[in-house]
Design a protein around this nucleic acid. Structure first.
Lengths: 157, 157
DNA sequence: CTAGCAGTTTACGTAAACGTAAAGCCCGAA
DNA sequence: TTCGGGCTTTACGTTTACGTAAACTGCTAG
């Protein structure tokens, strides 16, 4: 269990925002956010946000000591969380974000991201295959056990 | 990635033995095995076997310093590896093996194992659901990106 | 006798994503 | 003024399943 665990709130049916926020509905047109704002909006801990910053995923400005997150930071966070949901490591996400920052008109980066997404989808389908095989193996084992049980049902009662 | 990674040999089509070995075809009716025998037969490292012993999963006898594995040890190893494949932790496997060792006619243990197997299968199906959702999310994101790309295809030329 | 190989033990290292103190700063309320 | 929050930093702890290095013993071939 790593990739698809959401330790906190056990997968509630929250609307998971896409890459592009329609018109930022939700946090009505704010320009700047505190760490609390983001922890509440995205249900992540403050520790997590600082950790992401430490890893180069976010880079909020400061008001003295306090962190001030821009809408860009917020969009990046959204991207990070989406990446996590689909099984990218934070490192992979960071690479994509870094690429995006390089500029180049964004065309190349979009294509790179697209390719990564599709690779990831392939990998996920493989994982699904492995899970299917595991389920099948469990079913076989269960049958074996049931057979053993019914074999003993006679000579034991 | 944890549960379904087979770092070594990348999922070759080897025949994965069930819980009960038909008539021990393979290692023709041997009674005792060296650590090398088992590493080759099951494609695990010697380190792994010692680690499993350290964790109470195996308990081979000794010939001086050297480990001597019985057929029972070998069957337990088979069980451990099967358990791993379907996503049990070594700790969970150990608990099941310990239960089995308690005796009690084995009926209860078989039922316990059966229950755990079925729970595990349910959990695996949940994971598969999460993977399906992740795949869908990737597909959506890919579409978004393609849209952005084709939107830029014009004004960039 | 000497390599060399197989085996052993002990014990630290690794990866991932944070959790959890510990300790201190700053601000508003009572 | 003191207390409680909320924020900050630093840094060690957690989990799982081994990998890997170091240092030693014992056996066999040459």
């Amino acid at each position: 269990m790593t990739e698809f665990d959401h330790p906190g709130h056990t997968a509630e049916p929250r609307q998971e925002p896409g890459l592009v926020a329609g018109f930022d509905r939700g946090a009505a047109g704010r320009e700047v956010f505190t760490i609390r704002d983001l922890t509440k909006e995205f249900e992540v801990s403050a520790r997590t946000l600082r950790f992401y910053e430490e890893k180069g995923l976010l880079a909020p400005r400061r008001n003295g000591e306090k962190r001030l997150y821009s809408r860009r930071d917020r969009a990046r966070l959204r991207y990070v969380l989406m990446g996590k949901r689909v099984g990218f490591s934070l490192e992979e996400v960071r690479e994509m974000l870094d690429l995006y920052d390089l500029g180049d008109g964004r065309r190349t980066q979009l294509q790179v991201a697209l390719a990564k997404f599709q690779e990831r989808a392939v990998r996920l389908e493989e994982q699904r295959g492995e899970i299917d095989r595991a389920i099948a193996e469990l079913a076989r084992a269960s049958l074996e056990i049931q057979a053993m049980l019914s074999a003993r049902a006679n000579d034991e009662g």
